[in-house]
């Protein structure tokens, strides 16, 4: 792990619709640091605020309190400088652009000229092994291929950080495992740090250096689990005893979060009945 820190989240809270009857405490007191080249997964049940946390890092929304630093800069500055690339559950490709022109989009917005863009796009497509499809339209590709284009696009401007919101959530199991292996290879080749939102325990364990377990109402981090499966993970890793041990550990941490919540619900009920 290098010295520079890819992401620093310091004392961050997020309240939606503050002061209205629909007020929601989405995140409370979040502290999280992601090191250079590190792969960190955010896992938790729906409503635990993991996507909200990712969007705060991306500066798509602003925190209510606290501070977010990306690549050592304020989150808004980092966004303007395209310090990170982003991928979502939906590939979100533009139908009317060819595969290569989709990958070029972030570079277009940076004002790169055409031939330089094209060269970089082809480089990125080579990285995700889709060179032959450069001039296809997105709808001619399978779901897994579309998601690979989305990853190529996210990495086109060579950001040091990749933010991913359940990018493989809509893929079938076999494609999903293949994509996970590909993602690890790409990140190793490009030395990219990743913050990865998922609700699949095996996926989080297989991919991550650390798994951040979150629980809802209000969204908070309940535990951070180190996954020491070694730097290179293969098909065998998925059948290894230490892999299953980690899966159990994460599952138990998730369940503990659930129990906390039930206790809290009881406390809250007692408080309101008083």
């Amino acid at each position: 792990m290098s010295e520079h820190r890819a992401v620093v989240v310091d004392g961050v809270s997020k309240v939606f619709n503050r002061g209205t009857p629909r007020q929601v405490e989405a995140l409370v007191d979040i502290d999280l640091t992601v090191g250079g080249g590190e792969f960190v997964s955010l896992i938790g049940p729906s409503g635990c605020g993991k996507s909200t946390l990712l969007r705060l890092v991306a500066n798509l929304i602003e925190p209510s309190t606290g501070e977010v630093l990306v690549a050592g800069k304020d989150a808004p500055r980092a966004r303007l400088d395209q310090e990170y690339g982003m991928a979502f559950q939906q590939a979100g490709l533009f139908d009317w652009r060819s595969v290569a022109r989709n990958v070029e989009l972030p570079l277009e917005l940076k004002g790169w000229d055409g031939s330089r863009r094209r060269r970089r796009a082809l480089e990125m497509l080579q990285l995700v092994k889709l060179t032959d499809f450069a001039d296809h339209k997105p709808w001619q590709l399978s779901g897994g291929m579309q998601q690979r284009v989305a990853i190529a696009r996210a990495l086109a401007a060579h950001p040091r950080l990749l933010l991913m919101d359940e990018p493989f959530g809509a893929l079938d199991e076999m494609t999903r495992e293949h994509m996970q292996a590909e993602l690890l290879r790409i990140c190793a080749e490009t030395e990219t740090s990743v913050v990865f939102v998922t609700h699949s325990i095996p996926e989080a364990v297989y991919l991550s250096d650390r798994v951040v377990v979150m629980s809802p109402r209000p969204g908070r981090i309940t535990e951070i689990i180190d996954v020491d499966l070694g730097p290179s993970r293969t098909v065998e890793t998925r059948e290894d005893a230490s892999y299953f041990k980690k899966i159990t550990e994460v599952r138990e941490a998730l369940r503990a979060g659930e129990d906390d919540r039930e206790t809290e619900a009881v406390v809250a009920e007692e408080r309101s009945s008083r």
Partner: peptide
């Protein structure tokens, strides 16, 4: 997704 993506590019 397109709008979020473009916002992430500071478009």
């Amino acid at each position: 997704t397109h709008l979020e993506l473009l916002r992430s590019y500071a478009a």
